[in-house]
């Protein structure tokens, strides 16, 4: 199977195999005007399999959440058919409406309209805590949901 390279846009490479759809969902680019390609289970040198997303025409999408979902992925910004920037993904300091608090005593369980805000508290352990109740959640648990 072949997917053409793009002239201008973003290529998100080395997404953990099987995570491509979730990444697409979080990036919220389903209303994008340009062409979007999701390649699942492509062969990879680093890992056995990987997913790839190619987004044509846009270079300024919000990738904050991507660092949380799969910080092993790489983001390449393409202009005139060449990579002009490689963005290193890091765990974001603060995420809104990405992680859901599981604490039944948290105020967000009473008032679902409140934004779900989490802060990075331990980068080494990949732990986030809820802004309201401080319940701790690990990235591995979030990723596997």
């Amino acid at each position: 199977m072949e997917v053409n390279s793009i002239e201008k846009g973003i290529v998100i490479d080395h997404i953990r195999a099987g995570f491509g759809l979730r990444v697409l969902d979080y990036l919220n680019i389903d209303k994008a005007n340009g062409m979007v390609a999701l390649i699942m289970n492509a062969s990879s040198k680093k890992n056995d399999r990987k997913d790839i997303i190619k987004i044509e025409g846009v270079t300024d999408i919000d990738i904050t959440a991507l660092g949380l979902l799969d910080h092993g992925a790489t983001v390449n910004v393409i202009e005139n058919g060449h990579i002009i920037e490689k963005i290193k993904l890091e765990l974001p300091e603060r995420v809104v409406n990405i992680i859901k608090c599981k604490n039944p005593r948290c105020v967000t369980s009473l008032e679902p309209a409140l934004p779900q805000v989490f802060h990075l508290v331990d980068a080494a352990k990949e732990e986030y805590c809820c802004e309201y109740c401080e319940e701790t959640r690990r990235v591995t648990d979030i990723s596997s949901e």
Partner: peptide
């Protein structure tokens, strides 16, 4: 004082009046 954790923070964010947390759940 409210049984849900984080309730006082929610209140304080919505007003300029000083808010004191008198206990938010087990938090």
């Amino acid at each position: 004082r409210h049984p849900k954790e984080g309730s006082a923070l929610v209140a304080a964010k919505r007003t300029d009046m000083p808010v004191i947390n008198g206990g938010d759940g087990g938090h």
